Amino acid sequence: MHDNYCNNESNPSKETCCTKKPIELYVFIDPLCRNCWDFSASFKKFILEYGHYFSATFIPVSGYYTTKKLLEKNFNSLSFVWEKTARRSDILCDQDIWLDNKELYPYYSAIAIKAAELQGRHAGLNYLKKLQEYYFLMNKDITEKEVLIECAKEINIDVKEFIDDLNGPLSIKAFQCDLKITKEMLITEIPSVVFFSENIEEEGLKINGFESYQTYVKILQLMSKEKLTKRNLPDLLDYIKVNPFVTVNELCDVYEQSIQQIELYLKKMMLLRKVKKVIQNDTEFYQYIH
């Protein structure tokens, strides 16, 4: 089933999505969905502890959350988004029209993710993280071209190449391919994760919605058919270094420590001037001081 998604023809990326790791994950998210933002912390822990067993391809289903919320549709179906995007297929293919067409909100952000991803899977993931920070923490309009370019500058990718790809057909085609994959895999909730083993004859296992961390571990164990070896988490300060905005709750979830333990650690780091507190939208975040 999943081998169809590992060729360059169906996924117009500059790097192949095939991998030698035994498990392939397809992670379906909406950059504008708060639940997906919360899910990212749990998935970061999953990658840190078990990422040596799998590779992950992120599929931005932009518009699912916003469209459903605005139209008060049933959250158990993505059919409206598929049909709406299909009707706009001709517009999406005509880049000169959609670049200045606000009616296409919020697809622009998803297309920008694909433009970043053309510089590599890691670049695409970093861009997604930065886009969510701009949206949830800074109240930025991530459908504005200037904001999207600023995000590219922040993660130090080739900005000129990003702009060229943002204005080119490959990013749009990649986004349309993602929507096709979403429909073919019968994704009904966001976020969702589909697990595939290296045996292409086996069916994938799908987790619809945001489940507990142990659920993902159990599925990985089942798919890998071997005893999993968990990697040690990085030092807490190293984690903060590579995650620009972290909350106490996120650190508690990732490191499985109490609020009191995490707060005590952060106070020590603040006294040592290695960490600072930042307040955004009435929420406390902590940042590493470079």
Rank of each mutant, 00 (worst) to 15 (best):
L236K: 04
I240P: 02
K218F: 11
Q261I: 05
K218P: 01
I259D: 06
N199Q: 15
V254S: 01
I279P: 01
F210E: 09
Q260H: 10
V242W: 08
S224H: 10
L220C: 08
D238R: 10
K225Y: 11
L264T: 15
D235E: 13
K218V: 05
Q221D: 03
R273S: 12
L266D: 00
E263F: 03
S258T: 15
T215D: 01
Q280L: 13
T229C: 07
Y239D: 11
V242N: 11
L228Q: 00
S212H: 11
M223W: 00
E263C: 12
C252F: 05
K225E: 13
I259S: 07
I219W: 02
V242T: 15
I262A: 01
Q257N: 06
E211V: 10
F245T: 06
M270F: 05
L272A: 11
V278K: 03
K267S: 06
L220Y: 00
R231I: 05
Q261A: 08
I200P: 01
Y286K: 04
V278A: 06
L271V: 10
K218L: 06
V254N: 01
P234H: 06
L222V: 11
S224K: 08
R273C: 05
Y213C: 08
N208T: 12
K267R: 09
L251E: 00
S258G: 02
I219D: 05
